[in-house]
Design a protein around this nucleic acid. Sequence first.
DNA 1: CCGAATTGTTTTAAGCCTAAAATGTTTCCA
DNA 2: TGGAAACATTTTAGGCTTAAAACAATTCGG
Lengths: 172, 172
Amino acid sequence: MSAVSDCINMLDSETKAVETPEDHAEELRLWLRLLTCTTLIEGEVRGRLRQRFDVTLPRFDLMAQLDKAPDGMTLSDVSKRMMVSNGNVTGLVERLVESGHLDRRTSETDRRVQVIRLTKLGRSEFRRMAAEHETWIADLFADLTPKDVRELMRLLAKTKASAQKSAARRRP
Amino acid sequence: MSAVSDCINMLDSETKAVETPEDHAEELRLWLRLLTCTTLIEGEVRGRLRQRFDVTLPRFDLMAQLDKAPDGMTLSDVSKRMMVSNGNVTGLVERLVESGHLDRRTSETDRRVQVIRLTKLGRSEFRRMAAEHETWIADLFADLTPKDVRELMRLLAKTKASAQKSAARRRP
DNA sequence: CCGAATTGTTTTAAGCCTAAAATGTTTCCA
DNA sequence: TGGAAACATTTTAGGCTTAAAACAATTCGG
């Protein structure tokens, strides 16, 4: 390679002024592996919830959010926490109110807002499921040492921050 | 704590004969963080695919599988690779055949089997999307060092193996 | 104060996804 | 060879999910 092309390449890598097709195969593989892990575990949890408790994963997730909020949450809160669309929450809540697990009421101070809470039934059923759920998760991760867990936590925190930054770059 | 209870606890942890409510909060947090990362990145990729190419993520994923298999794949192959149900693939393929991206034919040697391939259109569109997709992923993971990437790959491989083992324990 | 943005929720249309049952085909083996 | 088991796919019924549009209530700035 000539001195001139060396110089051009150096400029490229320094300034990013020219498009050189870089190799991002490693990041791609990492993303696929991350996705595989999540899909695998999620499918396993979904199946166990259905078999043991005849409940779906989204219902369980919604109840988990509410269990942490004794004073209730608004639908937008839930939607942000669960990272799903608003309309999605509307339907989910509808079914859980119908089955007696949730209580929904319009806020006294802002008539746009719906506040939802677990009912007694909802809370007791959730607690029962959550206890077992925790053992499933422990079993699924059983081969990881405490050090592995710590290290994964750290790297995933870094990953999350990186992805959030990238997302913010696109729509500021 | 008495020597007797020491002894009992030791037996517990050695033999797992008695149920002691152990603390699995760390594993639970790890799972939630893993899920958050995946959901975040998946949502971002989904949005970009829709905006730039008006294509859905499942369609893109299916085409990605086929791009790696020039001789085509059977529906079950695809279903296993993508870790989704058979019926799901049927519908997905239907729509992609309809739009001219896929070619589906019954196997000559086994009339149960459907073999699908990318059409010329499908392949060229996929390659165009994949090139850009790769840069999105690189950007989403941009803050990870090469060492971080390697370490995550290793730990996720271990996680996957652990989860598969746990799943196999349940349905052998 | 009043209209314009903003905010919270629901609706709509389309597609994705699953588990289970049904259908058609091949293989296995007694 | 005949039928049972296994396999590949489709169908079914129901639920999940999204983006975008519509609707309702509040807030904000002039």
